[in-house]
Design a protein around this nucleic acid. Structure first.
Lengths: 213, 213
DNA sequence: TCTGAATAGTCATATTCTTGACTATGAAAG
DNA sequence: CTTTCATAGTCAAGAATATGACTATTCAGA
């Protein structure tokens, strides 16, 4: 039940429509959470039923009518409660890491391409985050903004996003370089064959094994 | 469907029981994926039905009987296919970031405590990862190991985990320092009250609003 | 000797997230 | 003048994850 709180937190900086929320929680700017439009519309409906957010309809001349949501006092209270409760640790869950884990046993070519692609994506996010941060702090220097500025929450989460993507990029570049070097230097073949004989797949070592079926 | 591949990747380094897998996918060492024991036992059963892993029973004198699993050739082929397919981007999803996003609107005290607690957890993981890396590379220096060693996959994912936790720790310490400073310097109160008047909660700005209900 | 932790594994339920649709409208691009 | 993009939102179904409880045995410590 953290999506609801993520939505509440996102709505703190001003009213947003479901559609705007969906964009914020999608690509790029999703610094602190990620969710698809369907989830967000559903969550907004639930939150409204429970009185934690309230929406008002805004009829537009040029665009379809939308509903802008804002956090109610009850919502703020709930957020307060959530913020004071224990956080569950966060885990990494990344396709690409699974593939790198298996790097010694699979074809290096496609893997290297994907790692480099990821590095490029990280670079793009880094640019984006830097722009967002500049915009948030305005004329002030970072240190000054963090001491004296208003609403540092979004700035801090964006800083985390930036550092994360920098770490991502650096690791991807290094990993790509290493995999390239190894697949070039690999004795004979540069593919999975190298390790299929090289390392032990250990197809049944004796061990303590008494019975076996 | 990435858990199955995470399991396959984890089994590449040698046979493991469901229980051992569960430990690897739980706290700490879960560098590239995280899952609970129930998921893993279920996934192992599925993988075995589909012939991607095979298990052998090992009766132990002192401990309950266990089953050790290893990846079959079909499993290796499937992993190969997975590694060559496109990766879906990974997203951050973190309770603590949601709370920090709302930092300007909630009580700073509990939040600071949690951020510092997280910093300590990160520090512990850093130590753990450093130990694991040292063990993996043995006598070799890191660069040398990455060039010439066997099975660099796990080493690389562990490096990512290390960098991630270092980023975590640094960000947590900085965030805690900033929140502390601000809650100390806050005019009058150091709590949510600061922003409840300070920044705009914008309870209905006029905007384009034609109709409203 | 009792207690708790570690080993080894399972069941059922509930929540959450993802996939793949589908309805509309207006504006810009070709 | 048609296609595509951006806005705005919704439904249904399925896969993946999480929660909580449960059965056993052995070893170490109070």
């Amino acid at each position: 039940m953290a999506l609801r709180h993520a939505v509440l937190a996102a709505l703190l900086d001003g009213e947003l429509s479901g559609y705007q929320l969906a964009k914020a929680f999608d690509v790029g700017v999703a610094n602190f959470w990620h969710a698809l439009p369907q989830q967000l519309y559903a969550e907004l409906a639930r939150l409204e039923r429970e009185g934690l957010v309230a929406g008002r309809q805004v009829v537009q001349e040029t665009r379809p009518t939308k509903r802008l949501f804002h956090v109610t006092d009850a919502g703020l209270t709930e957020l307060e409660r959530f913020a004071a409760a224990a956080s569950k640790p966060s885990f990494i869950r990344d396709d690409l890491l699974v593939k790198v884990q298996a790097a010694d046993h699979v074809d290096a070519g496609p893997l290297i391409r994907q790692v480099e692609e990821r590095a490029a994506m990280a670079e793009a996010k880094i640019d984006l985050f830097r722009r967002i941060l500049r915009k948030m702090r305005g004329d002030l220097g970072e240190e000054e903004f963090l001491r004296t500025g208003g609403r540092v929450g979004p700035y801090l989460t964006c800083l985390r996003g930036l550092a994360f993507e920098e770490g991502n990029r650096d690791w991807c570049l290094r990993t790509a370089a290493i995999l390239r070097e190894r697949s070039a230097a690999g004795p004979g073949a540069g593919t999975a064959a190298v390790t299929r004989e090289g390392t032990t797949r250990a197809p049944r070592s004796p061990e303590v094994a008494h019975a076996e079926r």
